[in-house]
Design a protein around this nucleic acid. Structure first.
Lengths: 141, 141
DNA sequence: TAACTTCTGCAACAAGATTGCATTATTTTT
DNA sequence: AAAAATAATGCAATCTTGTTGCAGAAGTTA
């Protein structure tokens, strides 16, 4: 059994051709992907299939959903032991306004947030916008 | 001249019937509003007019735009001296998963965020999701 | 009043997200 | 292995949010 199949199995996802391809593509990318990016990469696959594939991945916690403030949902592979829903595990996301790519800064955890009395936090989303390392380097040449 | 008209004037916005009504409604709400909420409240007003009214408010910095992670943009009145665009002034937002309302926690500023070398932050968006005070109290009765 | 600017209402469109349904593929049961 | 049940896929269609173009109404200025 191949690596990809093992990953799917570990997440209780039955492997199909499409799922393997989508997984492979996501893994090959360092930045988070939007549905339309997947759609244009797999240009002879059906939109709906890709949509439902990614939705399955999210449900099975193989991929997490990122709202980077562009209005377009992005998806990225969960790190090992990523419990997307558990507060302490949340890392921050960076959206570059130049190359428009969204990066998971997995090692950069969200600091402890104080809330007014009575508010219960379940989830925290922190997106920093600016210039990413790559674009920053390019412009300084 | 009424209060509402003064507010508009202070922000270099000409007052019209619609603008006064929209402003009044926004002021009456403690939570941030979506366009569709405005639309359904003013159900005999035109979508576009409301859209452009709110857009004018945002441009003139009377209202700030909130991305609460639901994918639907919310709007709330700027506090006095709110420089929405200036990093240090950014407060955090709370989205209740029960009542689905988004609240500005104006007094809760975003903590300093560390970024990897080479990344330049221009803007930070922090949204906490969970149960708001109101829903929390209701459920504990 | 005429000329001009601004605001409003209607229609239309675009993109992203989502659903229903029929078909195909896969798995389970007999 | 065939039948039955379950799951995945492809296509069409829809919804929602956000947005623009344009014509007419309202208000302003000369």
């Amino acid at each position: 059994m191949k690596n990809l199949e093992i990953i799917l199995e570990n997440n209780q996802i039955k492997s199909t051709a499409m799922r393997l391809l989508v997984l492979q593509f996501i893994l090959s990318k360092k930045t988070a992907l939007s549905l339309s990016q997947l759609e244009s990469y797999f240009d002879n696959a059906d939109r709906t299939t890709i949509y439902r594939t990614i939705k399955t991945f999210v449900e099975k916690e193989l991929v997490h959903q990122i709202d980077d403030g562009t209005g377009i949902t992005k998806y990225a592979i969960c790190e090992e032991n990523c419990h997307c829903e558990i507060e302490n595990d949340l890392h921050l996301h960076f959206h570059c306004t130049k190359c428009e790519e969204t990066t998971c800064l997995t090692d950069y955890k969200i600091p402890k947030i104080n809330l007014p009395e009575g508010f219960i936090a379940e989830n925290i989303n922190l997106v920093v916008k600016g210039i990413c390392e790559k674009c920053n380097n390019l412009s300084s040449i």
